[in-house]
Design a binder for these strands. Structure first.
Lengths: 237, 237
DNA sequence: TAGGTATAGACGTCTAGACAAATTATGAAT
DNA sequence: ATTCATAATTTGTCTAGACGTCTATACCTA
């Protein structure tokens, strides 16, 4: 390898790796070569390689995990937590193709927790929707939603067609609804969630618990959502 | 020096320097000790000191200049460039005390440039105001403003009292005005500007050229402002 | 087969030294 | 006193090596 004078070697290595990533040689999520492999490729000291990688980490282009390696950072989606936040709008606004796939649905009796959030009596029949939200085919979040059966009988079919809760609500005369509360926490995903998110079990998820209400303030949905922390960043304004 | 186990030495040094800065041992704008002095103080290798300093630079707490040293970074003020941007509001909003001192004023005939921006005939008499804007006594910007004499005769006295163009305009029946255009560039300051800004001549300034108009769109002020790039950051939304 | 252990692989930290690049201080010559 | 070249200071880059910490895997044992 021969280096141009005037620009430090680590900056040139940074550029080379950056263009490799831009060209798709290392795709988002891919494992980068190890430091020693890069040392051999560029013929420099390991510290010089590390200086270049540090710059890429700083630029949020790669993510390094001790003992495992460096990985190309997936573009993180900023997800604003407003009262009128709509998943599809956010994703389309970033020129990415949103999709919401229903994994399973069933009707069950509300436990105390669900009943409280939906403001119904425990034992009331509710619909449970389990879905995965994706952008360009990359899973961003898995959500479990609970809706009262009495008001939304048959919503499953509509949701399956429209792939949007917002659209489905419209079929039930709800043109406007808003987020009431959102609680945020972080945790490690269950095997099932990790699998659906296609992410490692030791990478954390951002978990939100929320209640949506219609225009008159009546709860219409209680949901628990697990966002991939590598792909989504929640924004509170 | 003895180090706690479990936390890397450079992080501990970073913390120590950070608390020194927080305690005012090194005040904003002050020169930090040289790397070699820190090496002697902490009894570690120079690279370890550099790692700690790099973290502080990354956190925008200090600024390093090759050959000169490291300096405690003054808190940079975010200056939004909206159409209704008011200097005093921005500064007070950051819990800092705004002040605008008039350095000089004179009446002269508009040259082609000034006339064009103010939409008057060349040769029309205009007032030139030369002022310094400060926050907590620290100069942030120097501004040269041009206003048509015909409309604002006697504004100098009012500006000197109120120390605000916004207030002065109100005395002339202008309760609302807005920014029409703003051009932004960067350059090195003249000796006079550098002196008024109390900054080094080799530190750049952000220069803006702007026209303010009243509610009916008539130009009322043409101004050139030089912001200290170490203390102000312009925000365009 | 399940579980624990040993080991290798990979990144993190620290030290040591040399030279380059930018700035500042010094001192001589005019 | 000013100017200019030189030296000293100070930060930037690169190399070299050692050891620590974390992860994943292979292997051994019960």
């Amino acid at each position: 390898m021969d280096w141009e004078p005037g620009l430090s070697i680590w900056k040139q290595i940074e550029k080379l790796l950056l263009s490799d990533i831009a060209d798709g040689v290392f795709a988002p999520g891919d494992k980068m070569p190890t430091e020693m492999e890069l040392v051999r490729r560029f013929g420099v000291n390991r510290h010089t390689v590390r200086r270049a990688m540090a710059a890429l980490v700083d630029a949020n282009v790669v993510r390094v995990e001790q003992g495992r390696g460096a990985f190309v950072q997936e573009q993180i989606l900023d997800y604003p937590l407003g009262s009128k936040t709509r998943f599809s709008q956010i994703v389309s606004g970033r020129h990415r193709l949103p999709d919401k796939r229903l994994i399973s649905s069933e009707i069950l009796k509300a436990n105390a927790n669900i009943a409280q959030f939906l403001d119904v009596k425990p034992g009331t029949r509710v619909i449970e929707l389990f879905s995965v939200s994706e952008a360009d085919g990359i899973p961003l979040a898995v959500a479990t939603s609970y809706l009262p059966v009495a008001r939304f009988e048959g919503i499953v079919e509509i949701f399956t067609q429209t792939k949007s809760l917002t659209e489905a609500f419209k079929h039930f005369g709800i043109d406007d609804y808003s987020r009431k509360t959102t609680r945020i926490s972080a945790q490690l995903p269950s095997s099932r969630v990790a699998s659906l998110l296609k992410q490692a079990k030791n990478r954390p998820v951002i978990s939100t618990e929320s209640v949506d209400v219609d225009a008159s303030g009546v709860p219409i949905e209680y949901g628990i959502t697990a966002f991939s922390s590598d792909r989504v960043q929640l924004i509170v304004e």
